[in-house]
C-alpha cells in the first residue's frame, strides 16, 4: 500500500494560512479553493487544522461544509473538538476522520464515546509535541502553546487506552522550519506505535525530507505544510502537490 502524502491546510478563521511553530500566520489564500486543487490532484488525504480551535473551542461548521463540498478524497479535521455532537456534525458533513488533541488530555471519556460510536479508524489522536528547551524532553503541548503536564509517552498511552485507531505526531517546534524529521523524537516513540497507522508532521520542507520519513521510519503518512503552499522557503505562494510515491 502506498504511503500517504497529506497536505495540511491550516485554517485561521476562514483563511488558509501557514505558521511557524504555530505562530506568525502567513496568509496563503482560500481554503475552499486549495481543497479543490488537492482533491483534483488525487491527494492521499487532506488534513484540515483549525489553529485556533483548541484554544477558542469554536468550530466554523458552515465553512467546513463548504470546504467538504470540494473534496472527493479523504478529509480529516483537527481543532476544537470538545463534545460528542462535534463528531456527529463533522462526520455528517463529510469529514472521514476527526482528530482529537486537547480533548484527549482533558476528557478522554468523550473520545472513548466517539470511538464506540464511530469506530477506532475514524478517531485520530493528534499529539502536538513540545520539546523543552534545555533538557530536550518531549511533552504534549497544551492550548497555551507550552508543555502540558503530560509527557509524550503518557499522552500516547491515553490515546491508545481511549481506542484511537490512528496517530498524528506533530513536531510543532519544527513546523515551518524546514529542518526535516526529528530523529531524536522518533527514537523516543514507543514500539507499540508500529502497530498503528501513524502520520508525522512538522519540518518537512523538501522531497528528500519526505524520503527520510518513509525510508527510515515506520510512519505510514507524512503531513506536508510548507512543501504544499510555498515555492521556496516561506516565500512565493504556490499551492502544489509533490509528485512522489512510496510504498
Amino acid at each position: 500500500m502506498k504511503k500517504r502524502l497529506i497536505p495540511v491546510l491550516q485554517l485561521n478563521g476562514r483563511k488558509l494560512v501557514k505558521t511557524r511553530d504555530l505562530r506568525d500566520p502567513i496568509y496563503i489564500g482560500d481554503p475552499i479553493n486549495a481543497c479543490r486543487i488537492f482533491s483534483e490532484k488525487n491527494a492521499s488525504e487532506i488534513l484540515l487544522c483549525n489553529i485556533k480551535g483548541s484554544k477558542d473551542r469554536i468550530i466554523d461548521f458552515e465553512h467546513l461544509e463548504e470546504i467538504c463540498s470540494e473534496s472527493f478524497v479523504p478529509l480529516a479535521y483537527i481543532g476544537g473538538v470538545s463534545q460528542i455532537t462535534d463528531f456527529d456534525r463533522l462526520f455528517g458533513m463529510g469529514i472521514e476522520k476527526v482528530g482529537v488533541d486537547q480533548l484527549l488530555l482533558t476528557k478522554p471519556e468523550i473520545v472513548e464515546d466517539a470511538v464506540r460510536k464511530y469506530g477506532s479508524s475514524s478517531v485520530m489522536a493528534s499529539i502536538t509535541v513540545q520539546k523543552t528547551r534545555f533538557r530536550g524532553n518531549y511533552f504534549a503541548r497544551s492550548v497555551n502553546n507550552v508543555a502540558s503536564k503530560f509527557e509524550l509517552s503518557d499522552a500516547l498511552n491515553i490515546a491508545k487506552d481511549a481506542g484511537c485507531g490512528e496517530f498524528v505526531i506533530h513536531a510543532s517546534y519544527n513546523e515551518g522550519t524546514y529542518r526535516g524529521i526529528d530523529d531524536v523524537l522518533v527514537s523516543r516513540l514507543p514500539l507499540w506505535l508500529n502497530n498503528y497507522p501513524v502520520t508525522y508532521m512538522g519540518g518537512i520542507g523538501s522531497e528528500s525530507d519526505v524520503g527520510d520519513v518513509f525510508e527510515s521510519t515506520f510512519f505510514t503518512g507524512v503531513g506536508l505544510g510548507s512543501l504544499c503552499v510555498f515555492s521556496g522557503q516561506r516565500s512565493g505562494i504556490l499551492v502544489r502537490y509533490p509528485n512522489l510515491s512510496y510504498s
Partner: peptide, 28 residues
C-alpha cells in the same frame, strides 16, 4: 498496521464493469 488506512489496489476477475485501480480504505 491496523486499521488498514490508505489507498490500495483493487482487482477482480468477475465483478461487472469494474475498472481496476487504487481505492481508499479505512477499516479494522
Amino acid at each position: 498496521p491496523v486499521p488498514h488506512m490508505g489507498w490500495s489496489e483493487v482487482s477482480t476477475t468477475d465483478f461487472p464493469f469494474f475498472v481496476e485501480g487504487e481505492f481508499y480504505f479505512t477499516h479494522s
